[in-house]
Design a protein around this nucleic acid. Structure first.
Lengths: 320, 320
DNA sequence: TTCCCGCGACCTCTTGCCTAG
DNA sequence: ACTAGGCAAGAGGTCGCGGGA
């Protein structure tokens, strides 16, 4: 059973295969009647254009490359869901490339996507390629979408991290809060981290608490253990309210350690509203990550091309 | 800057491009000398064969399709890491397809992979396609690898779930255990679940506890909330030791709820050794998931073609 | 003229067969 | 009669034009 090709359709429709091609690409002038007929026959014969052939002749791939430092975090999980959902709908495929935690592989991977025409669009997560490289892709007709990154030449999709951090700060300070602490990732390279921090500090300042100082616990892996470490560090320093700008998972670790050590009274707010946060009772700044994923996909697919800043929403639960 | 093609290499080497093709495919009779020269020039020019053209002419794709009900679980996360690692090394790419939780999409997705030649190999996670479909793929030269599934016509990779369940049971029964409970997923359709249950029951039987009966809490989503529900159900029934065959995440929920309600003394063992288990202090049956991912990739890439059953290892921590 | 449609060239690479030594 | 290497025919499409009605 061979695959049905454009020629099979053409033969059955009694036209040249060129005409069929045009119909399936909405190109050239084809009469309504012929087009209908061809479409119908195409459906009957279950015809789908051959991706390889298409890519070959057009010099472009339709697949979307997703580049991320890792695919195992709560954030990428959720993003993934959104991407998947859109991908399923559109029929376009995705390829995933991990750059490694440090991101040294980013440039190299993007270069190979470019050189080997592996994709017609690239979605970069939590990282920012060099401007020159982005430009090069753009000129080659490869769309670039940045999630949590900034660039002039790409569609940028991110949460309103400043506002999120601000809201977390305001919430924390609306209750008892003598000494605030913040758990934060790499503020130098990850823009979301510096933005959340900035938002948080803005709240502190507004409330007049900034002058009293605050504690910072900087982490790299954004994992459970880091959160536990943060707890031990903070408890020693008398921190009584904390904002985990680094995400929910460190907050889980923090909470867990607190409950284990039977320390209560420290209030904490996370960031993400990851899957376990509800169960944990964690107050957190919800990001609409899944929606971001869907938007990113649409942008990559060319349906959308404006920068998007997603709102965040403070979800208050038990911990703050 | 156009991509360097086989012709560029040929021109520079002063041979026909056919010769170059043959060299890069180790086919036909080419003298050692010419081959060397061509390879050298190919490297100089940074030549990589065009995937699309190759796929077109050979009728086969080199990419590996990964099909899973979802990509957001602890298990798939870890698996993903392994797949990524191998993929990075081999240079082969992967495409991911979500079938949805119920798996109704599985047949359809595999069919489309087959019909549209989207991949040269398929890795199916936690599901089992119809035997006939597997055969069809096999006959078309598409390798099929099943993770946690069984088939005559595919390479099967799984954990030794029976042994894992057994060890968990033995451990639990080696301490105080008046009434055992098991949290389990869909035993009908997910072979790992029925196997773990079987192993666990074997232990109960051996210890002569089976006749006293045991509690079961069946869940579908394998999430945190399910674990909390399990706790509430079990605590009512006087269960004092539980095995979460459904994975670590429900065990997290269970544990969390227990600590929250200040109930201690219920011992629990999970399955997976997911990322947060160490932090949680959860005793669990470790699966070498990442290694399974790597093995699955190698099998899909054609490097390996024997069924593999991975050992499990009981990691004892605080909870049991 | 205008509207539809098809010719022919081309995209990059593989492969069976052929030819020049 | 071998051996090293080339010719030509596709694989399944796209697209600019040319041309018939």
């Amino acid at each position: 059973m061979k695959k049905t090709t454009i020629k099979d359709v053409a033969k059955k429709a009694g036209v040249s295969y060129v005409t069929v091609s045009k119909v399936f690409n909405n190109r050239g002038a084809i009469s309504e009647k012929t087009a209908e007929k061809i479409k119908k026959i195409g459906a009957e014969l279950n015809y789908t254009p051959d991706r390889a052939a298409r890519a070959l002749v057009s010099g472009k791939s339709e697949t979307i490359a997703v580049v991320s430092p890792e695919f195992a975090s709560a954030f990428t999980q959720l993003l993934f869901e959104g991407l998947q959902e859109s991908s399923l709908k559109s029929g376009k495929e995705m390829n995933f490339f991990a750059t490694g935690a440090t991101g040294e592989g980013l440039e190299h991977i993007i270069e190979s996507i470019y050189a080997e025409k592996k994709a017609g669009a690239v979605i970069v997560i939590s990282q920012c390629p060099e401007e020159a490289q982005i430009k090069k892709l753009k000129e080659a007709g490869i769309r670039v979408v940045l999630i949590e990154g900034k660039s002039e030449n790409a569609v940028c999709i991110s949460s309103d991290n400043i506002k999120g951090g601000y809201e977390a700060g305001m919430r924390l300070l609306s209750g008892k809060c003598r000494r605030p602490g913040i758990i934060v990732g790499d503020v130098k390279y990850i823009s979301s981290q510096s933005e959340r921090l900035a938002g948080f500090l803005k709240a502190l300042k507004e409330k007049g608490v900034l002058k009293n100082g605050y504690e910072t616990f900087e982490i790299r892996k954004h994992n459970f253990q880091d959160g536990k470490n943060a707890f031990n560090s903070f408890v020693e320093k008398g921190v009584d309210c904390v904002f985990s700008a680094a995400g929910d998972v460190p907050a889980y670790g923090f909470l867990f350690e607190a409950r284990k050590q039977r320390v209560s009274g420290i209030r904490i707010i996370g960031f993400d509203d990851a899957v376990m946060s509800e169960g944990m009772g964690l107050t957190t700044v919800k990001q609409y990550v899944k929606e971001m994923g869907m938007a990113a996909f649409d942008a990559a697919a060319g349906k959308e091309n404006t920068n998007l800043s997603f709102v965040t929403k403070l979800i208050t639960r038990e911990t703050a």
